[in-house]
């Protein structure tokens, strides 16, 4: 096994284990911390795929900004494992079974797809993920969506302030 394969399987196992721990944890703060671990593992996958810009943006935006927002809200509401509402055990079992059926169905679909046979993702090489190439495409072909995005951000900011305001 090469180093890239070892890293791939380690990061995959870390991502899946942390994702399961997000669901299993009773305390919402622990769930947030496990979700940050998932985001770090996914950033590691981006680095393996040589998508360096996305790896850093994923760390800054998701693991940095969004999860801190979640953590602040949870601490503001003073949630802990005692106040955590629990579904009935049969409802949980039904949810797990339906999610597992969905996973089995999609996996069998992918296994039958002949188009995917022998296709490989380019690992640790190729320069499409570098910030220079992404920036060139973003500010030439995709400059209008980029500007629309700023309007979306402005409206989301106004919306969050209006909703969160005390009346």
């Amino acid at each position: 096994m090469s180093t890239i394969e070892i890293l791939f399987f380690f990061l995959s196992a870390l991502a899946v284990f942390s994702a399961i721990m997000v669901l299993v944890s009773k305390n919402p703060v622990h769930s947030v911390l496990w979700l940050i671990a998932v985001f770090f593992a996914i950033s590691g996958h981006y680095v393996l795929l040589n998508a360096q810009f996305l790896a850093i943006v994923n760390l800054i935006v998701y693991a940095g900004a969004i999860m801190v927002l979640f953590l602040f809200v949870i601490m503001l509401m003073n949630l802990n494992s005692e106040t955590e509402p629990q579904k009935h055990i049969w409802m949980k079992l039904a949810g797990v079974i339906s999610g597992g059926c969905f996973l089995m169905m999609l996996i069998s679909l992918v296994r039958q797809a002949v188009e995917m046979g022998g296709r490989k993702a380019m690992m640790a090489e190729g320069d499409t993920g570098l910030i220079k190439n992404l920036g060139k495409v973003l500010f030439s072909e995709y400059v209008v969506p980029f500007e629309i995005t700023s309007v979306l951000f402005l409206s989301a900011m106004v919306g969050a302030v209006v909703i969160g305001k005390k009346n």
């Binding site: 899946v16 994702a19 399961i20 997000v22 669901l23 579904k87 409802m91 949980k92 039904a94 949810g95 797990v96 339906s98 999610g99 597992g100 969905f102 996973l103 999609l106």
Partner: peptide, 9 residues
Amino acid sequence: SIGIIGVLT
């Protein structure tokens, strides 16, 4: 799928 299970449970 883990995300879906979380939303359901």
